[in-house]
Simulated scan of single mutants.
Amino acid sequence: MIHPTASGDERRSVRIREVGPRDGFQNEAETVPTADKIALINALGHAGLTRIELASFVRPDLIPQLADGVEVLRGVDLPAGTERMVLVPNGRGLDNALRQRELFTGQALFDAVTLFVSASETHNKKNINRTIEQTMAEVAVMGGRIVAEGLRFCAVVSTAFGCPYEGAVPMNHVLDLAERFVDAGAVEVGFGDTTGMANPAYSGRFFAAALDRLPGVEVTAHFHNTRGQGLANAYAALEAGCTSFESSFGELGGCPVPAGATGNIATEDLVSMLHEMGVETGVDLPALIDAARAAQSILGRPLTSHSIVAGPVVWAGR
């Protein structure tokens, strides 16, 4: 028996960026030992995840869970060609990132940098204590520096699908910010459902519009599963033409600003859904599930992805 796939899906493929090592670990109550982080990241890379967000250059007193970012970057052993991404919140963070990169010239600590802004003024102020305009003015400068260093400049617009403080966020406002990132040199723009307020109908309309407004730019979907709609939103984005996604093993993560903002969609659940639809990811799903299960032992608690419990789908005769 051949497993069912949606008509026309068999030859599609997508790119997935694993964000658990940064977006996931930063929301853990206790710091994960550096050696355990490195082992998990290596397992994720060897499971076929070729794009991984490894660290963030933020003040260690603000996010102590990521204070070992340089040690992680230096310690991982990933397959050749794996994209190593770091996130920086401001010019000072970029200074630190580039300084560390210069110190270790014999080792490619990272090759992609993400800058971000919230589409909501209130969320941006609560998150990084700056207005949107202050953030974007700095982005214009930082973007040029990233490009000049030969690094891949990626951007994220957070609260793109709604804000718990301000409510609905106009689509045109979100896409205007995306275009400003592109003008600053970004080759990829991700749109974050930071607190899980998206729904599939709007997600489909949004990504159709984003792909139309941003030709030649990699448009990436970043959904959270706060209200259980994460995979449905990812499917809607896929059907609208989106072929780039971010997710986190074990459904780790969540925005640290508002209460109740739970984790990202689980990478293993996303990969499982895509594979059953005949969409290629390049990921070894059983190996990915093994890595997520190992994370449970390290964290000392069960994680919330479905695939950790159920495992991959097995069809009789496959």
Rank of each mutant, 00 (worst) to 15 (best):
L274M: 06
M277I: 02
C242F: 05
D77W: 00
G317P: 07
T31K: 11
Q296C: 10
S297T: 10
S244C: 06
T226L: 00
G192A: 12
F249Q: 06
L78P: 13
V189D: 00
L40F: 15
T194M: 04
F223C: 00
I63T: 10
I41C: 11
L211V: 01
G167R: 14
F245K: 00
A47M: 06
A35P: 08
F161A: 02
L303H: 09
G260P: 07
L103P: 07
A97F: 12
F161C: 02
R227F: 11
E280T: 04
Q100G: 06
T194D: 03
S120Y: 10
C154N: 06
T82L: 02
M197S: 06
K126S: 14
Q100T: 06
F181A: 04
R51H: 10
R12M: 13
E138P: 02
V313T: 06
Y235S: 10
D77H: 12
R293D: 03
A39N: 08
Y202W: 08
N124I: 05
V76A: 07
G162F: 07
T34I: 04
A155L: 02
L285I: 05
G91I: 01
T159H: 06
D23I: 04
G45D: 12
A201R: 11
L73F: 13
I63N: 07
V14H: 12
S305W: 10
P302A: 00
T195S: 11
N90Y: 04
A80E: 14
R59A: 12
K125M: 15
D212N: 12
T304V: 10
F104S: 06
D183I: 09
P21K: 09
L274N: 03
E276I: 01
A237H: 08
A97G: 05
N127F: 15
L231Q: 03
G24C: 01
T5K: 14
H306I: 07
G24R: 00
G204F: 11
A168N: 12
V76K: 05
S118I: 03
H3C: 14
F110L: 00
D23Y: 08
V86I: 13
E218Q: 15
L62R: 11
V271I: 00
V157F: 03
D9M: 15
G241R: 09
D212K: 12
A80H: 15
L299F: 05
P21N: 09
T262N: 12
L175V: 03
A168M: 15
G24T: 00
F161Y: 14
G69K: 13
S244H: 14
T243S: 08
I265R: 03
A97T: 01
R301Q: 09
I41M: 08
A97C: 04
K37V: 01
G253F: 11
M273N: 04
A29K: 12
P89E: 03
H222T: 00
L214V: 01
H222M: 03
A295W: 05
E239T: 13
G254N: 11
M85T: 15
V271F: 05
F153T: 00
A294H: 07
D290F: 05
G144M: 10
